[in-house]
């Protein structure tokens, strides 16, 4: 056991050394320096804390919620916030706090599904356009423009209407509207990489186009896309809530925040809590992702 493995000071020195001994050390050192920069930004740290809290809430929802989020008690409807029901109850007598807590799971599922659909889609289209250029670029970018020229919510709305209601379909609809900016970022990135010497070298060695794009171009685009994604999470959450609000997102009785606000609309002037708390939840989580994304961008994407 070496000494520096246990002492944080030595860790610090090892990580921040200006003459790393291995590739791994350099890489870790870079990450560590980025972490230090990130840590200096209080807003970003708050964002990180919020996002971590979201993950924890989702993971331990059954322990944190005091009630079953789906259990109706028609004789206890629209109760004001109290010690028993922290956020009050809704029109079917369900505990709003428990529904908000379980709603974190719904939100996370939506966000993750969108990310794993949009990322690859945008990446592929953008990299292909940027790498091949010419007519491939023109065609793909025209398609991107068409989608960008749509009001995003209207497009998502149309897709959901076409696919039918439900969480999965809402995700697909959002993914359909969210990819164009990713494609643009990936394209811009690829255009830079394309002309790099090592790519030309590989081309000369006779590597297949497919191989170059998938093995060398795509991985280089990933970091900036991750930043873009974090930054976009808030937008995704808000669009998803908007669909839920219009009654086209999650199916009842799933505790989706947007749908919860929508049902609280009717009681807004008398039982303000029904629509207020899910809204605050959306704001906090969206703000968390925005702060985090903002911090990450400062650190990783200095350009």
């Amino acid at each position: 056991m070496t000494d520096h493995a246990t002492s944080p000071v030595t860790w610090h020195a090892w990580l921040t050394t200006t003459s790393p001994e291995s590739r791994r050390q350099a890489k870790l050192g870079q990450l560590y320096r980025q972490w230090l920069a990130f840590r200096k930004n209080p807003a970003a740290v708050v964002g990180l804390v919020i996002v971590l809290a979201l993950l924890l809430l989702a993971a331990f929802a059954p322990l944190i919620a005091q009630h079953d989020p789906l259990a109706q008690a028609l004789d206890q409807r629209l109760l004001a916030p109290s010690a028993k029901h922290w956020f009050g109850t809704d029109a079917l007598g369900r505990d709003i706090f428990s529904r908000v807590v379980y709603g974190t799971r719904v939100t996370l599922v939506i966000v993750m599904l969108v990310v794993i659909t949009v990322g690859p889609l945008g990446l592929l289209i953008g990299c292909a356009a940027g790498y091949f250029g010419g007519w491939v670029d023109t065609v793909l970018m025209r398609i991107t423009d068409v989608f960008l020229a749509f009001p995003r919510l209207v497009l998502a709305l149309a897709f959901v209407a076409a696919l039918g209601p439900g969480l999965e379909n809402a995700v697909i609809a959002i993914a359909f509207t969210a990819w164009p900016p990713y494609a643009r970022v990936a394209r811009a990135e690829t255009m830079i990489i394309r002309n790099a010497d090592y790519i030309s070298a590989m081309r000369l060695q006779g590597a297949s186009q497919m191989r170059i794009v998938l093995k060398h171009v795509v991985p280089m685009c990933v970091p900036s896309l991750i930043v873009r994604t974090t930054y976009d999470m808030a937008g995704i959450i808000i669009i998803a809530a908007g669909l839920g609000f219009l009654g086209l997102g999650a199916q009842p009785p799933i505790p989706e925040w947007g749908a919860m606000i929508s049902t609280g609309r009717e009681q807004i002037f008398d039982q303000w809590w029904v629509a207020t708390f899910p809204g605050i939840a959306i704001c906090v989580v969206a703000l968390g992702f925005n702060l985090l994304g903002d911090g990450l961008r400062d650190v990783l994407d200095a350009r």
Partner: peptide
């Protein structure tokens, strides 16, 4: 199949339970 309007949605959920 349920219209997203009240009281239809609420009745549907009560029936569901």
């Amino acid at each position: 199949d349920t219209r997203s309007v009240n009281p239809i949605t609420d009745i549907a959920q009560a029936v569901q339970s």
